[in-house]
Simulated scan of single mutants.
Amino acid sequence: MTRSVWLKADDEVGDWEARKRRITAGLEAGVDWVLVDDRDVERVRELGQVNIAAFRNGDVHVMEAEADESDADAAVVGKDGEGDGTVDLPADFSGSADLSTLRADGDGTQGGYVRILNESYEAFAEAVADEAEYTIVIGEDWQIIPLENLIARIGEETDLIAGVQTAAEARTAFETLELGADGVLLDTDDPDEIRETVAVRDETQRESIDLQEAEITAIEQTGSADRVCVDTGNLMDHDEGMLVGSMSRGLFFVHAETAESPYVASRPFRVNAGAVHAYVRTPGGETKYLSELSSGDEVQVVDLDGNTREAIVGRVKIEKRPMFRVQAETESGDRIETLLQNAETIKVASEGGRKAVTDLEVGDRIKVYYEDTARHFGEAVDESIIEK
Results as ranks from 00 to 15, higher is better:
N51I: 01
K79A: 08
V34F: 04
D38H: 10
A67T: 03
R103G: 12
G78Y: 03
R103E: 11
L27A: 05
D88Q: 09
D59E: 03
D88E: 11
G81D: 10
D80L: 15
R45Q: 06
L89Q: 03
E28Q: 12
I52P: 00
V31F: 14
D98G: 12
S70I: 05
R56M: 15
G48Q: 07
V76G: 05
D73A: 02
G78L: 15
R45W: 02
H61P: 02
L99M: 09
V77F: 13
E64Q: 14
G78A: 03
A91S: 15
A104S: 14
A74I: 07
A29I: 01
R45T: 00
A97M: 07
D37V: 00
R56A: 13
G48K: 10
L27G: 15
F93Y: 09
D40Q: 02
S70Y: 02
E82L: 03
V87A: 09
D84H: 10
D88Y: 06
V60M: 09
G95V: 02
G58R: 05
A104N: 02
P90D: 01
D68R: 15
E66Q: 11
F55L: 15
L47Q: 04
D32A: 12
D40H: 07
V76C: 11
V36F: 06
G30A: 07
T101C: 12
E46W: 10
A72Y: 00
R45P: 00
D84E: 11
G83K: 03
V50C: 12
P90F: 05
S100L: 12
D92Q: 09
A54L: 03
D80W: 06
L102R: 07
S100H: 04
S70A: 13
L47V: 10
V31T: 06
D84C: 13
R39T: 01
R56F: 15
D71Y: 00
V77T: 12
Q49N: 14
E64R: 15
A97G: 04
D92C: 03
R103V: 04
V34I: 04
M63N: 14
T101K: 12
A53V: 02
D88G: 13
A104R: 04
G30F: 06
D37I: 00
T86Q: 11
E42T: 08
A65E: 05
D37E: 08
F93L: 05
E42Y: 01
D88N: 09
A67C: 08
D73H: 05
D92N: 05
E69W: 03
A104K: 00
S70W: 08
S100F: 03
S94L: 01
A67R: 09
D80P: 06
S70R: 06
R56S: 06
P90E: 01
E46M: 05
L27F: 05
R103M: 03
M63D: 14
R45K: 10
D37P: 10
A75K: 05
A74R: 11
I52E: 06
V50L: 07
V41T: 04
R45M: 07
W33R: 13
A53E: 06
D68T: 14
R43G: 08
E64I: 14
G95A: 13
G83Y: 00
H61I: 02
A97E: 01
D38P: 02
D84M: 15
A54Y: 00
L47C: 11
K79W: 08
E28Y: 01
V36W: 08
D37M: 00
